[in-house]
Design a protein around this nucleic acid. Structure first.
Lengths: 332, 332
DNA sequence: TAAATCTGAGAGAGCGCTCTCTTGATGTTG
DNA sequence: CAACATCAAGAGAGCGCTCTCTCAGATTTA
């Protein structure tokens, strides 16, 4: 392990002072072209790369931000394609802003403490919080640390941090209104977990439309996994064998629901219409392909990054709600 | 932004020297209990958290490791559940070893350079490389930097870094042998991309068994996406309408293949048997549920982390190949 | 031409921590 | 009881960098 060259070495080789070498490295304009070239040459010769620890010790910046994924205790999200899409998109965006991404998982209370300690330790300049469940104390805790924080999805407890969310209520209304307008009478729903904002809001949207259209609500609750969707669908068929439509709060559960419907001998959409939510890639490949609600997930991630950068610059940033759209395929 | 307390402040409050306070923080045994308690009290009172930049400046360690995901230019992997599972599992494992995870995406040549520069900059103690495509120069480049590197999946070019992989050849053989033993005569395959080791090896396994069982090979190539699986299946049906089985190199493509078979009016498994590879969660929910090859993905990630930690301690570590297993469902 | 202004480069402090070296106090041995 | 080993705690150097302050020399102005 040959030692890495320091600024000192570069300066010596170029025959200038450390300060001047530093100026060149940081692109300051007050260096004569000839000297700049000499230093640059020395940098190239030596393969110099600034030591970030030393740099951030003095600048008090780290140029890295934490991506905190706060999962519910049930480890259900590893399969959710939204999870990786958000992480990837956010990473790409942050990298183009020259920020490093430190990924932190916060599931247990222990890891919660770890995350708080880490962030309090000043390792990162800001935090992007992907909080999955409502009772999460993390948004409030981080907000208290006076570190710039933005949230993916509206925080459940009202706390003053900017967030990006999609219009869950509006999207659910879109879905259910579609079922109503195609003449469905007995419209059930498989709701998401009620300790998640997304779960709550999508159920609210469902209820809004049913109320207005004078229909009875038929509700089962899942936890956003395929498995729970399958179970909930069986339950629903038992509760009301005559149901002719179901709005499922996410596509993953809809996949499970389709399976249960198939096993129960119901044809989709002839006997039962199904509408999902999210428009994941897999929705195109179900049997039949799934009618669903699309929300702009790439844009949502990108917006979150923009929000954080704005927060760095201005100290404030406004929440953003993105619109949803109905994608009609064969299931409804 | 009230300034964070320093070790100096802790020492002053406890009435000891900075050195002693440091000893307590780092849990050295040579401190008298009374003094230790006093320092601990001061730490708690002040809410002291060590400044990591200062610490790693002197220790030359960062306690963070880079998780470099080197994707092929086609951004196909965001949907692949393996992607997020590996990242999650590795993160959890590393966190329990008290290492931070810095996530880096290396898709373009530009980001390649970024990654190299970052790692050369000594920001991390080690690298876990998830390299997806064969022509990837990154394994060799990183290995040259004399930084501990482990790879998820065998590197395509022979380079001396430890890796964890599953037995791709053996798994494919398992799959195809199952098709042979259930009396299938015309066994096709949808291979993965041939610039990926996984794609190559699974095709090799297929060929091995066909050769031994005196059958003709019928090959189409996909890129591990659902879409490409659907396309390849259509191609295959056109090439040999009488085929009665297909081994698909991953489950995602198998999902696409099942859709194409359905659209072509073929019944699965009656007309055509289908075997996938990976055993992703979605494999249970296809119509019909997918027979596939399971490999221990959690264990694979965990092993990779263990390998890296071993590398830290001993300077060397041996590659590990994990076994695969046939999971029989309804599609074959 | 002397004084004032500007400009590029060096000197040196200091960011917060660890760790070696030193010192003084206590304990042990012949 | 002298000589030595043991141990806890302090002093201080230094990790590699940035940034302010200073100053020498070039340029402009009266």
């Amino acid at each position: 392990m040959n030692k890495r060259p320091t600024l000192e070495a570069v300066a010596a080789r170029a025959g200038v002072s450390r300060a001047t070498a530093s100026r060149v490295v940081n692109g300051q304009a007050t260096v004569a072209p000839a000297i700049r070239d000499a230093v640059q040459q020395a940098i190239d010769d030596l393969g110099y790369v600034p030591n970030s620890a030393a740099r951030s010790l003095v600048t008090q910046r780290t140029d890295s931000i934490a991506l905190v994924v706060s999962e519910p205790p049930t480890r259900v999200f590893s399969e959710d394609p939204l999870f990786s899409t958000v992480i990837r998109t956010a990473s790409v965006e942050l990298e183009s802003a020259d920020k490093q991404v430190v990924l932190m998982l916060a599931s247990s209370a222990k890891s919660h403490a770890r995350v708080e300690r880490y962030i309090a330790g000043g390792h990162v300049d800001g935090v992007m919080l992907i909080s999955m469940h409502g009772a999460d104390p993390l948004p409030a805790a981080l907000s208290r640390l006076r570190v710039p924080v933005v949230s993916y999805g509206r925080p459940a407890v009202p706390v003053d941090i900017p967030y990006v969310d999609n219009d869950n209520v509006g999207g659910a209304e879109l879905a259910v209104r579609h079922l109503v307008s195609t003449g469905r009478r007995r419209i059930a729903t498989i709701a998401g977990p009620q300790d998640m904002i997304g779960g709550q809001d999508r159920l609210t949207g469902y209820r809004n439309v049913l109320r207005d259209s004078d229909r009875r609500s038929i509700v089962a609750v899942g936890d956003f996994t395929r498995e729970s969707g399958a179970t909930a669908m069986r339950q629903l068929l038992q509760d009301d064998p005559a149901l002719d439509a179901v709005f499922v709060a996410n596509d993953l559960m809809a996949v499970g629901a389709l399976q249960s419907l198939r096993q129960a001998g119901r044809r989709v959409p002839d006997d039962v219409a199904v509408v999902g939510f999210d428009d994941i890639e897999a929705a195109k490949y179900t049997e039949p392909p799934l009618t669903t609600i699309r929300h702009p997930i790439f844009e949502q991630s990108a917006t979150m990054v923009r929000l954080l950068l704005t927060l760095f610059d201005n100290g404030v940033a406004e929440p953003v709600i993105l619109p949803t759209e109905l994608v009609i395929r064969d299931s409804a």
